[in-house]
Design a protein around this nucleic acid. Structure first.
Lengths: 227, 227
DNA sequence: GTTTTTCTTAACACAATCTTAACATCCGAC
DNA sequence: GTCGGATGTTAAGATTGTGTTAAGAAAAAC
């Protein structure tokens, strides 16, 4: 028996039916979405074990869906896309996709790649919260909102990524290098200066001039304290 | 920079060179094999972090290599093959491959898929000890923190490196030269004096004026005692 | 195309860390 | 005991890392 829940995100109905029919025949449970925002909501509410994601969606780009989900979850994502350019594959994989299939694809190959992921899931089971709370700080990953003492904070995209990274690793000392790689991507320019500026603005917005929440470890990096 | 060791199994020399050159340029370490049996031996002896495997080998079939390695190891295997049939892909994936690229492949895509695997390894790969305990002293390597009697100590980068080195070699006498090489990197002129200063501050922070924890061996070096 | 927001860069002040040097102390050999 | 070499201690200066600000560039929104 197969208990895995798959979220299928695909706006093209024939292809979606092809996938869901295949899944059903192989004893997967599934839910479907035909829009990116719907996919984000469903992955938060239903916590699927695997996501099969088309990149060309009517509302937001599939890459954005990946980025958004990755702020709180490590759920395996298989991209199924008509875009066959190397650059598209590389972008998707670097943004957090686990695999990339080019349309037209063989359903048997999709099934095989699902089994690869299942094999891995059996070994490490991870649950992902959609909300993070620490003292007065609260992050709602699904809506992408941050609250301090119930007041909503306005954070820029980089500030948000930064606080999510710190929150995901609360208690851990994160090196500058690690932070820069995870927030800015593989491009390692001279973001060291930027990082300091962003920390300053984040602390200001969090009322953390005393560094009670975000500590500096000189010569190493930063750490969010568990309050 | 990049510490991952990749085993490249490929009998076609031009392709093998292409792969290894790419790996070298991206700061991977690598070893190569051009036969299946050699690959099996090497993966046992060198324990690579990732294997890139061609299926068409002169002695035994690549599938057999996968099966054999999977009897004892979960090391990620990326298959790179000229066989583009679905059935070949599915067989390889079901036998234990983690990914499958069809020749001719883009080296950039290979690199992206390697990064996907690395991302995964970073999360689960805690092969080494994550914590060190000795008497009242506790070092949490993952969190990068040192505790004495449950109180967190504030250590500078060099102090931290130093105590980690002593801890990893607890019970052993480490020579001055060894310590200096490992903490300061390659040959440094007059760090001998610095080392003494750092030992003093470390002992002060560890409340170890009696040298119960860190012993001096005159003319040789230092040793952390097992308590 | 213009306005607004966000990001990067540079400059500077300040704080933490590291090195160096001078001197004190310990240890073993004689 | 005392001598010499090695180690411990301390403090000052050099070096490096960090926080902060502001201005201009880049990107996004309109």
């Amino acid at each position: 028996m197969n208990e895995y829940l798959v979220l299928v995100v695909e706006d093209d109905k024939p292809i979606r039916n092809l996938i869901t029919t295949t899944l059903k025949m192989n004893n997967y449970r599934y839910i479907t979405a035909d829009k990116g925002n719907e996919a984000i909501m469903l992955s938060a509410s239903h916590k699927p074990d695997i996501i099969v994601l088309d990149l060309g969606l009517p509302d937001i780009d599939g890459i954005e869906v990946i980025e958004h989900i990755r702020t709180w979850s490590d759920v395996p994502i298989i991209v199924v896309s008509a875009r066959s350019e190397d650059s598209d594959k590389i972008t998707a994989l670097d943004k957090g996709a686990d695999d990339y299939l080019t349309k037209p694809f063989s359903v048997d190959e999709l099934l095989a790649r699902l089994r690869v992921i299942q094999r891995r899931l059996m070994k490490t089971d991870n649950t992902s919260e959609t909300e993070f709370v620490n003292g007065l700080l609260r992050i709602d990953y699904v809506y992408g909102c941050v609250y301090l003492d119930s007041e909503e904070l306005h954070l820029t995209p980089i500030e948000y990524k930064l606080i999510c990274l710190l929150a995901k690793n609360v208690g851990k000392v994160l090196t500058h290098k690690f932070i820069i790689q995870n927030v800015w991507g593989s491009a390692v320019d001279n973001s060291d200066a930027s990082l300091r500026v962003f920390m300053a603005t984040l602390r200001k917005k969090l009322n953390d001039s005393q560094q009670a929440l975000i500590q500096t470890h000189i010569g190493i990096g930063y750490r969010m304290m568990k309050l």
